[in-house]
Design a protein around this nucleic acid. Structure first.
Lengths: 343, 343
DNA sequence: TTGTAGGCGTTATCAG
DNA sequence: CTGATAACGCCTACAA
């Protein structure tokens, strides 16, 4: 099968390559009729321009890439949809790239920026702890969406949109305390975690402290390293161990809804009732937290708004209206069936 | 910020571009020392080769693309992971591309094939009804994984791996009947559906017929068009309508687990018990079907095996061991808490 | 409105 | 082992 190129089309049409190029790219300087004719020939011969060649030649394309780390996260789907809509509305094209858990997203971004002549980048998920030097290798505007940042990164070096994980986590545990719970177990990230896992855990500790509840390390359980993190399975397994430990508790705070659901399952399987025997709360506000039985009390992240604001900031950056921006949205406490008052 | 190219690197190293190229691509014909030196300069200057230029020049790359339609489907994640592992194990690189619901996957594939010089393609999800003419525009091997095919497409024109949706759906409904259920409502696809939705529905009808149960159109409910299909929300809304209709039934078969969960929620909210008042069954075998309360009886698709076989066939195609192949895996009936016997 | 020719950054060829 | 140089397929001055 011969590769058919723009030159072939030009020959078939008896015109120059320029004209064909113009027909393809909706260039104004072209006769409508010849354009029609060319397009017809193109269709008939199933000619498709080679993107590599285009990108190579083009000085800049109007495309925005979204790099997503940990495609597992269920609420990314919603965000991606919003990104796509907003980007298309601005007449830019949209490119989604998954980046592996153990890949450096900045490296991927740099490569992609050159390859596709990107106008902007959105980083979704994962954890950022790159040096300023690395960050400045990115020559196009970028925004971090729902991403944990290392504390030592200069806020002036990047833009971000997210929820205040510390504060919102605090609110949730505060709510649990206000229901009279004092023995609140938690399923949280590993100790080395420095991202949202840590923030949510800090919120937990602070809330307990503010309620005069002594911190009890025996109530703190970490996700299993050998199971994918933040999954139902992880919550399930950890909760089984928690139960087996005979440690007393009246409420369980899992730092994600998926963990919470796994926890509920483990509780229910052990013949316990939720919330009669144990209150359970999650975090994120996934759809399933509503559909689960019992429905799960959680902090709902305003994913749509986060996504929208991300794009807004990105375009402000592109249009040089701003040099950087940080926006945090409040999460919403969804009080549902899985928690009850002890008072 | 100046774009730095291979030529710049060559100059800085005092060597020719060829040598630099060799260093980058691990070509054997190069002195280890000069290679070291060049790599060092590359690192220091953060030089990154331009992929567009590479793809343009390269005759063929060793990359396999996976085109996925409807990223929403939760079990695709598992499959993607397997694809990635298997492809990397074969020393090929892996490229994942999402294709929009209303985009023609073949068009995307053709474009990508040229751009990236693909060696093979996996199509995941969606529905296929392309003409032979269209299919043959694809000059590289491809395999359809978990995809519904129109009946009029020549099996010799493509390869596929999936579950027999008709047969497995039949088995599930057969099981429901064997529990003594005769009034089995179903939440299914729209009438125009010609893909897995139709197949599963046909399986439902056949099973009823074989058990001598009269087909009752009033028990057949279709997903809402204005809500994303196969979602919990869709199952939830439809089931509310079903309940409001006062139509009598003892079991509900939703053609996906997500629909089934939405259905359960609607039932539970209405004060009904599952399975005491209504048995509920789903299809797919998602993780959540196990974690839900009650756990959902379902047909579990062997997603890992399907993914593995997909890659195996793809490489057989690439190595010209075969010209096409079709493989169907059996699904596994998972009898769980959401269904009960009437006998 | 149309065509010619040069170059985008790499890799492959082929001669040193 | 190394280095010019010609493609790869397209876009875009510039000239016609």
């Amino acid at each position: 099968m011969e590769r058919i190129t723009i030159i072939d089309i030009a020959k078939m049409c008896g015109v120059g390559v320029t004209t064909v190029s113009r027909a393809i790219n909706n260039h104004p300087d072209i006769n409508e009729e010849t354009k029609m004719m060319i397009m017809k020939v193109i269709k008939e011969n199933h000619y498709i321009p080679n993107n590599s060649a285009r990108n190579l030649k083009r000085a800049a394309s109007k495309t925005i890439a979204v790099l997503i780390k940990g495609i597992t996260n269920p609420f990314f789907n919603t965000m991606i949809k919003v990104f796509e809509e907003e980007i298309k509305r601005k007449k830019y094209s949209f490119f989604l790239q998954r980046v592996d858990e153990n890949q450096d997203e900045i490296d991927v971004a740099i490569e992609l920026e050159k390859e596709k002549r990107l106008k902007g980048i959105v980083f979704l998920g994962g954890y950022f702890s790159h040096s300023k030097e690395k960050l400045t290798q990115l020559t196009v505007p970028f925004v971090l969406s729902t991403i944990g940042m290392a504390e030592d990164v200069e806020p002036n070096d990047y833009s971000s949109v997210s929820v205040d994980d510390f504060k919102e986590s605090y609110k949730l545990v505060d709510y649990l305390c206000s229901l009279g719970h004092t023995k609140i177990a938690t399923i949280t990230a590993n100790l080395e975690d420095v991202s949202i896992g840590k923030l949510r855990f800090e919120g937990y500790k602070k809330a307990l402290a503010d309620h005069g509840v002594d911190y009890n390390a025996d109530l703190v359980w970490h996700m299993k390293e050998d199971i994918e993190s933040y999954t139902m399975e992880n919550g399930y397994v950890v909760t089984k161990e928690l139960l087996a430990s005979k440690e007393e508790f009246t409420a369980l705070y899992a730092i994600s809804d998926s963990l919470a659901i796994g926890a509920c399952k483990a509780l229910l399987e052990a013949g316990k009732r939720v919330p009669e025997d144990y209150s359970v709360a999650g975090f994120d506000g996934l759809d399933i937290s509503f559909y689960y039985n019992p429905s799960i009390t959680t902090m709902k992240q305003p994913v749509g708004e986060i996504a929208q604001e991300t794009i807004k900031i990105l375009f402000d950056l592109i249009n040089k209206k701003i040099t950087h921006a940080h926006k945090t949205f409040p999460a919403e406490l969804m009080v549902r069936e899985s928690t009850r008052s002890l008072l």
